[in-house]
Amino acid sequence: MTEPTQTATPQDDSAESRAQRYPLLSEPHVVLHGTVDHSMYANFRTQLAAAPETGPIVVAISTLGGDPEVARLMGEELRLLREYTSRETLFLGKVAVYSAGATFMASFPVDKRFLTRGTRIMVHERILTKTINLSGPLKSVIAGLQANLHEIEHSIRIEEEGFRALVRGSKIPFEDVQQRAPANWYIEADEARDLGLVLDVI
């Protein structure tokens, strides 16, 4: 059993001493930083392929956000790895885990998530910027409007799935995320630990 699988409740002590409990986190196998986009995904795939073939995989990220679908894609890669190989995947958030970074974090179980001290998570609603031009026969205009409405409705369902995954196993009700996300919800590392959103802060 590796260190992060221990279920001991984090104690009220220094971040330095807590870090000693999780030596695996000192050298992440995959280190991601910057905008979550297809370039990050390519980097993620390259580092994942170079990781050891056995044992837990530690993924560290620092990001101000980006494409939530790329974040979901990276999360799915790790879910499949867990299910096909039964290997542990551990999340380490550093400095900023904003927007799509929180979406990526949601793909890890809460007891496999860690933050460095001073790190902040930011959760918000998806943002849509789109101009709709109405032109053509009336029925086709209606169909076009309905297509855009369906896109928005589907995006909301995906967003809510992500929110539920983020707080599953924590002390945070899904309804709290719904209420606070529109105004950009910032969560400090220690608060995230106290809410059960991550296992510990190092």
Rank of each mutant, 00 (worst) to 15 (best):
Q179I: 13
G65H: 06
L73T: 15
E191P: 00
F91C: 02
T9C: 08
I187A: 07
A183F: 13
Q20C: 01
I187W: 07
G34R: 02
A71C: 05
T54L: 03
L92H: 07
H38G: 14
S99C: 03
H29D: 13
R120V: 12
E53M: 11
S99W: 01
E83A: 09
T119R: 06
L134M: 07
A51W: 00
I172L: 03
L78F: 04
E77H: 09
L149C: 09
Q20S: 09
G144M: 06
N148S: 06
R18Q: 03
D13V: 15
F104N: 05
T131K: 13
F91L: 04
G34Q: 04
L24R: 09
E77V: 11
P28G: 07
D200Y: 06
G55T: 06
L64N: 14
E191V: 13
G196E: 07
E16I: 11
L24S: 02
A60L: 08
E69T: 15
L25K: 02
V36S: 09
Q20H: 02
G169T: 03
E76G: 12
V97K: 03
L92M: 04
E53D: 15
A8W: 11
I121Y: 05
R180L: 13
K139W: 12
Q146W: 02
T103Y: 03
R126W: 12
P109T: 03
E69R: 14
A189Q: 03
E191D: 14
L138K: 14
L128F: 10
T129A: 12
R164W: 05
A181H: 05
A60G: 08
D190K: 03
H38K: 15
N43V: 08
R82I: 05
V110L: 08
A96S: 06
M122S: 05
H33F: 11
S39G: 15
E88I: 08
E160N: 12
D200F: 04
A100F: 01
